[in-house]
Each structure stands twice: as structure tokens, then as C-alpha cells.
Amino acid sequence: MTIDVAHQGGAVPAPSLRRRPNLLRRIVRHWNDYAYIAPAIVVMLLVIGYPIYYTVELSFFKTPPNLAMSQKVFVGFDNYRAILTSQSFRDVTYNTLIWTVVSTFFAYVLGLGAALALNREFLGRGVLRAVLLVPYVISAVAASYVWKWLYHSDFGVIGALSVQFGFTDEPINFLDNIYTALPSLIVVNIWKEFSFAMIMLLAGLQTVPDQLLRAAQVDGANTWQRFWHVTMPHLKGVSMVTILLLVVTNLNSFIIPWIMTGGGPAGATDIWITQIYQMAFGRIRFGMASAYSVILFIVMMALGYFYVKALTRGDEAKSE
């Protein structure tokens, strides 16, 4: 056996064997890896990429009611102008803001309360948690009909109870009154989604180090101070993501207002999405509705930016 001795010391510069492959070469070299994600990419392109492109395109056209797209007429920014200057846009935006902000606020606060109360071992904790999550799991359509029945103007149990307890003289017409309709729907929405906030925050609470709480206790912090100075800072990240997701979900809600009031009475519960749907599939004005969608879309993109940021905080440090 020969003795191979390489007389290179550490100081010998590395001979340049090959250059850093350029992008194309790297892609070609990794084509095998792309095969794994190809199905996902194809589906996403088909169902997301193309629609986004097409929506933007349509938003500059006036579309015929028979949806023969070869007959669409280019109108530039007319659709946008028409929407942004209309009175109804302002009303609907106002409703959308109320709907989103109030729903999100209460869902978060109730969720936080529930999470804190549940973050302790007691008999029936698991069952209680499961029960609270049921509204989140069931179909929004079913939930809407159930609440529609609860709110029923003549035979609704809520109206009956309010008379029974003497709050009102006769059953309230919750859904047909322009002042009570939106708040009534917001209650349903909160009912449906507060447990989502709860479950997220409950998971977030698991990350609060017990030692820190105990240390704070030793330092003489009372319950509130411990919550505010120890627990809350640890929930910051989860809260961000939760609130963002709630906001997005609420901006996107459709089923509850659509089933329960159809946007009525007199547009009192009309929000962006119901408006878009109505415009597209009620009045068959796809161009206009597309422009509306793009506006919504831009709002979403801004939120999406924060969402990804909140989701990947600390991830950069980890990856590569």
C-alpha cells in the first residue's frame, strides 16, 4: 500500500475548481426538487394566480350581462371611479369597518378572558374547552339559521325572553330594524369566532415560562402586574397573528350577513363582500365587481404583509 501524503498546509488557497453555478444552472440542477412542489404550484397557479390576474384585468372592463367576455369593453379606471365616488361605497365601507373592528375586538377580548381562565387545571376543563370550540367548527350556514330563529320577530326566543324579563313590552324585531340588525349580526359573528382567539391564546400561554411567573411572584408582583408584565409580553406575537387572522376573516365574511339579512334592511348590514357578490352574481356586473375586489385585495395585501411578518418573526435567524 502506498502512502498518499498531501503536503497542503492550511494556508494553501483553495484551487478554484468550478465557479458558483448561475441561477439557471441551479434551477436545472434542482429540477428534481421542484417535482415535489409542482402539483401544489400548478393547483395554486390555477386557482389563485390566474384568478388574481383575471380579476385585475376585468376591473378595467365593462362586462356584458350574458358574460360573453369577448364583448367586454375597455373602460380604463371608470369602474374604480364609479365605486369610490358612490355614496353606497361609503356606507358599505362604514359598515365593514364597524363589523370588522367590533367583531375582532370582542372576539379577542372574550378569547383572551377564556384562555386565561382555562389556563389552569380544573375538573371539566377539557370538556368546557371543547364545548366552547363547537361554534367555531360547525357550518356558518347552520349557525346563521339557528340565530335567525333565535332572533325571529314573532317566535324568537330572545324576544320572548326579553319580554318575559320585562326589558321590552313586545318582542324586538332584531333583523328588520336598521339600528339593531348590524349589532345582532356582530353578536353571531363573535359567537362563532371568539373560541378561535381562545385556542390560539391558550396555545400562546403555554409558552409563558412558569419560572418567570414564579420569579415575579417572589418579587412581589400581584396577579394583575404578573399578567401585564410577564404574561402579556409573551402573548404579543400570538396576539398579533390572531388579531390579523380575525381581521382578515371578518373582512371576508359573507355567510352570516348573506343568510341572515342578505345585506338588508336598507343596506344596514351590507359589507364589502356581500356588496361584491350582489354586484357580480345579482346584477351580473363582473367588471364593476372586479374593481371592487381589487380594492379589497389591496387592503388584504397590506394586511398580508403584516401577517407574513408576524408569522416569520425570528424565522430568518433560524433559516440558513
Binding site: 502512502i3 498518499d4 501524503v5 498531501a6 497542503q8 492550511g10 494553501v12 483553495a14
Partner: peptide, 8 residues
């Protein structure tokens, strides 16, 4: 440092 120094 990636180099084989000695083999024996």
C-alpha cells in the same frame, strides 16, 4: 480544513 494532511 478539507485537506487530507497525512495518511499512514
Amino acid at each position: 480544513g478539507g485537506f487530507l494532511q497525512q495518511y499512514d
